Amino acid sequence: MPRNPRNQIYPGYEDLPAAGRSGPLVRLWRIRTELLLAAALAIFTLTLLDATQQGRWMPFILLSSAISVPAATRTGRNWITSHVWCVISRHRLQRVCLETTMHTRAGRIPLVLWITPTSRGEKALILTRAGICAEEFEAYSEEIAAACWARSTNVYRHRTRSQFVVVEIVRRDKAPGAVSPGLDRLYGRRAWVSLRPDFEEPPDLRADAALTRAGH
């Protein structure tokens, strides 16, 4: 028996097209990180070959230092690891949409506009397609957590623009004193509403909400 009626939005007898149909620009957007890494690797290789052929080793030393020095520090390794998880989670989110009913009748899935590391995991900003809403992501929250190899997920809807959804992927407890970068700073923490009635907001969010109500 399904946990939520939104888990079965299409009748079982309906013959739907295969999910994942999208234009070339959308497909390129989904692999933008991999394309940028491939371009950076190509530039590094060409620079190295040009430097060795001309007997100039300074560009090679500078480029090698720019890569090896950050990787040798704990902060650099944490940065690399957190962004690798962002790429993995983005692809796993897309796979969940393909494997479930979180796609349109034409086979198009929501767009992951941006994903950023946080102190507890990752946060993904998603633009839904027509026929898909934030409540459907909440209905599939357990599937998303399992697909992303995470502890749990939290789903938030924008207060005024319901086509925007934030999916928070929780992998660990929040480190004391850690700052959550990215979505919270750019879009404002008070712009998002949790879909879980029993969800308890952090103290700083409750204080911000109280100040907002007092101002009105």
Results as ranks from 00 to 15, higher is better:
residue 62 L to E: 05
residue 70 P to G: 00
residue 64 S to T: 14
residue 214 A to C: 07
residue 18 A to S: 14
residue 3 R to K: 14
residue 146 A to M: 11
residue 37 L to E: 08
residue 80 I to A: 14
residue 215 G to H: 13
residue 201 E to H: 10
residue 168 E to V: 02
residue 154 N to C: 08
residue 76 G to N: 07
residue 54 Q to K: 15
residue 56 R to V: 13
residue 180 S to G: 10
residue 18 A to G: 08
residue 127 L to A: 00
residue 105 R to D: 12
residue 86 C to S: 03
residue 116 T to F: 07
residue 87 V to K: 09
residue 133 C to R: 04
residue 101 T to H: 12
residue 71 A to Q: 07
residue 175 A to H: 14
residue 85 W to C: 09
residue 154 N to K: 03
residue 37 L to H: 14
residue 118 T to H: 11
residue 196 R to Q: 10
residue 3 R to I: 09
residue 5 P to Q: 03
residue 42 A to Y: 01
residue 211 L to R: 12
residue 96 V to I: 09
residue 114 W to E: 12
residue 110 P to R: 07
residue 155 V to H: 02
residue 96 V to S: 02
residue 40 A to H: 09
residue 3 R to G: 08
residue 187 Y to Q: 07
residue 211 L to S: 13
residue 103 H to G: 09
residue 30 R to G: 05
residue 15 D to K: 15
residue 79 W to F: 15
residue 80 I to D: 04
residue 149 W to T: 05
residue 201 E to T: 03
residue 15 D to P: 02
residue 165 V to T: 03
residue 174 K to L: 03
residue 144 I to L: 01
residue 81 T to Y: 06
residue 53 Q to M: 13
residue 135 E to S: 10
residue 31 I to D: 03
residue 81 T to C: 14
residue 27 R to W: 02
residue 10 Y to S: 04
residue 93 L to W: 10
residue 170 V to T: 05
residue 6 R to A: 04
residue 43 I to Q: 05
residue 148 C to S: 00
residue 50 D to G: 11
residue 15 D to Q: 12
residue 3 R to Y: 13
residue 53 Q to I: 08
residue 93 L to V: 00
residue 209 A to H: 14
residue 142 E to M: 06
residue 117 P to Q: 06
residue 206 R to L: 03
residue 142 E to L: 11
residue 39 A to C: 08
residue 25 L to S: 12
residue 17 P to F: 15
residue 206 R to E: 00
residue 206 R to M: 10
residue 39 A to F: 09
residue 196 R to M: 06
residue 167 V to N: 05
residue 34 E to K: 12
residue 82 S to T: 11
residue 107 G to K: 11
residue 47 T to M: 14
residue 195 L to W: 03
residue 40 A to E: 13
residue 137 F to M: 00
residue 169 I to P: 02
residue 18 A to I: 04
residue 65 S to E: 06
residue 117 P to N: 09
residue 32 R to Q: 09
residue 179 V to M: 04
residue 161 R to L: 06
residue 70 P to M: 07
residue 206 R to S: 00
residue 97 C to V: 05
residue 104 T to M: 01
residue 204 D to R: 12
residue 34 E to A: 01
residue 25 L to K: 12
residue 151 R to E: 13
residue 158 H to E: 00
residue 66 A to V: 10
residue 184 D to W: 15
residue 13 Y to R: 09
residue 43 I to Y: 02
residue 19 A to V: 15
residue 208 D to P: 04
residue 110 P to Y: 00
residue 51 A to L: 06
residue 114 W to H: 11
residue 140 Y to S: 03
residue 205 L to W: 03
residue 160 T to Q: 10
residue 45 T to I: 14
residue 151 R to C: 06
residue 21 R to W: 13
residue 153 T to D: 01
residue 27 R to Y: 00
residue 170 V to A: 08
residue 96 V to P: 03
residue 65 S to F: 11
residue 63 L to K: 04
residue 178 A to R: 01
residue 52 T to Q: 15
residue 202 P to M: 04
residue 34 E to C: 08
residue 151 R to H: 15
residue 61 I to D: 04
residue 83 H to W: 06
residue 94 Q to W: 09
residue 100 T to I: 01
residue 195 L to C: 12
residue 203 P to T: 10
residue 42 A to N: 05
residue 45 T to K: 07
residue 56 R to F: 06
residue 46 L to Q: 11
residue 162 S to R: 02
residue 51 A to K: 08
